[in-house]
C-alpha cells in the first residue's frame, strides 16, 4: 500500500511536470507576445519593445523561460506582466471567491443527481424516467449563457432580487441576516447554472449504474431472503452502485474550473475563471500558466484522492 501510494504520487508529479511543459510551450509558441499587445502605438519604439522583452525574459530561449517561470513560481516571486502584482496572492484571492461557487455547484450536483437517477432506474420506462431523460438531454444541449440569461431574467423579474456580482453594493448597514441572504441569492443562480450540466450527466450515470446493479444476483438473493424493498435498494444495491462515483469526483474538477470562465463572466463574479479570462485578454502569461498549473494540480490531487478512497471503500481492490 505504502509503495503503491508513493509510486502513484511520483507518477502524478511527472504528469504535472509534463502538463506544465506543454502548457508553457503552447502559450509561448502561439503567435502574439505581451510586447505586441499594442503594435500600432507610434510611441513604442523597437528599443522599448526590446526592453519589455528583456524584462519579461521573452528574449531568452524557451527552456530558459520555463526555468524562470518555475523558479519564480516556487519562490513566490512570480509577478504578473500586467500590473507587477505577485501572482500567487492574486490567484489565491480569486480562488477564495470561486470556492463558494465550486462548493455550491458540487453540492447541488451530488445531492440532486442521486435521488433523480435512482428513482428513474427503479421506475424504468415510466413517465418519470422518460421525462427526466428528456430534461437531462435538454440541459446538456442548451448553451450555458443562453440559459443563464433566461434565469437572470426570471429571477430578477419574479423575485425582484439582484443576482449579478457577489453581493449588492451599499448594504453594509443592513442587518447581518439580510446580508447573508443577499450573499446566498447571489450565489444560488451561478452555482445552479454551473451545476446543471453535471446534474444531467451524473443522474444519467446513476440511473445506468443502478439498473446494472439491480440485475445482479446478490440483489435477487436479497429479495429472495424476504428483505423489504427499501433494504434491498438502499443497503444492497445502492452501496454497490456508489463505487464508481468515487472516481467521478476527481474528473469533474477540470470541467468546473473551465466552465467557471463562462459563468463568472456572465454573473460578474470576481473569481478564478474571470481572472483567467482577463489574463488571456492581456496576454498575462504568468497568470494564465499558473492558473492552468493549479487546475492541473487540483485535478491530479482529485484523481489521486479518489483512487485511494476507492481502495478504502471497496475491499476487493488492493493497491499494490
Amino acid at each position: 500500500m505504502g509503495t503503491y501510494l508513493l509510486r502513484n504520487l511520483l507518477q502524478r508529479l511527472v504528469l504535472l511536470f509534463i502538463v506544465s511543459v506543454i502548457a508553457h510551450a503552447v502559450v509561448h509558441l502561439a503567435p502574439g507576445e505581451p510586447s505586441e499587445v499594442d503594435p500600432s502605438n507610434p510611441r513604442m519604439k523597437p528599443e522599448d519593445v526590446a526592453k519589455i522583452r528583456a524584462a519579461f525574459h521573452l528574449d531568452k530561449p524557451l527552456y530558459a523561460q520555463y526555468g524562470y517561470w518555475m523558479r519564480d513560481l516556487f519562490t513566490g516571486e512570480l509577478k504578473s506582466f500586467k500590473d507587477s502584482q505577485p501572482v500567487l496572492p492574486k490567484i489565491g484571492r480569486r480562488f477564495l471567491n470561486s470556492l463558494p461557487l465550486f462548493i455550491g455547484a458540487t453540492l447541488i450536483v451530488w445531492t440532486l443527481s442521486f435521488p433523480v437517477g435512482i428513482r428513474a432506474a427503479l421506475h424504468r420506462g415510466s413517465g418519470y424516467d422518460r421525462s427526466t431523460t428528456f430534461v437531462a438531454y435538454a440541459l446538456i444541449s442548451i448553451p450555458g449563457f443562453f440559459l443563464s440569461y433566461l434565469a437572470i431574467l426570471g429571477v430578477v423579474g419574479f423575485f425582484g432580487v439582484p443576482v449579478i456580482g457577489m453581493r449588492t453594493f451599499g448594504i453594509q448597514d443592513a442587518t447581518p441576516v439580510y446580508q447573508i441572504m443577499d450573499r446566498f441569492w447571489h450565489l444560488a443562480i451561478p452555482s445552479l447554472m454551473s451545476a446543471l450540466g453535471g446534474i444531467a450527466v451524473l443522474s444519467r450515470y446513476v440511473r445506468s449504474q443502478m439498473l446494472e446493479v439491480m440485475g445482479q444476483d446478490y440483489v435477487r438473493t436479497a429479495r429472495a431472503k424476504g428483505l423489504d424493498e427499501d433494504t434491498v435498494i438502499y443497503r444492497h444495491a445502492l452501496r454497490n452502485a456508489l463505487l464508481p462515483f468515487i472516481t467521478m469526483f476527481g474528473f469533474m474538477l477540470p470541467a468546473l474550473i473551465g466552465g467557471s470562465v463562462i459563468f463568472e463572466q456572465i454573473f460578474a463574479w470576481p473569481g478564478l475563471g474571470r481572472l483567467g479570462y482577463e489574463a488571456i485578454l492581456s496576454r498575462d502569461f504568468p497568470v494564465i500558466l499558473t492558473i492552468n498549473f493549479i487546475a492541473a494540480a487540483l485535478t491530479l490531487a482529485g484523481t489521486f484522492l479518489s483512487d485511494v478512497l476507492y481502495a478504502v471503500a471497496d475491499p476487493r481492490i488492493r493497491l499494490e
Partner: peptide, 14 residues
C-alpha cells in the same frame, strides 16, 4: 488534466 475550455480559450485568443 487541462481544463479544456480554458485551454481552447487560451489558444483561440492567442
Amino acid at each position: 488534466c487541462f481544463p479544456t475550455f480554458f485551454l481552447i480559450l487560451t489558444v483561440v485568443a492567442l
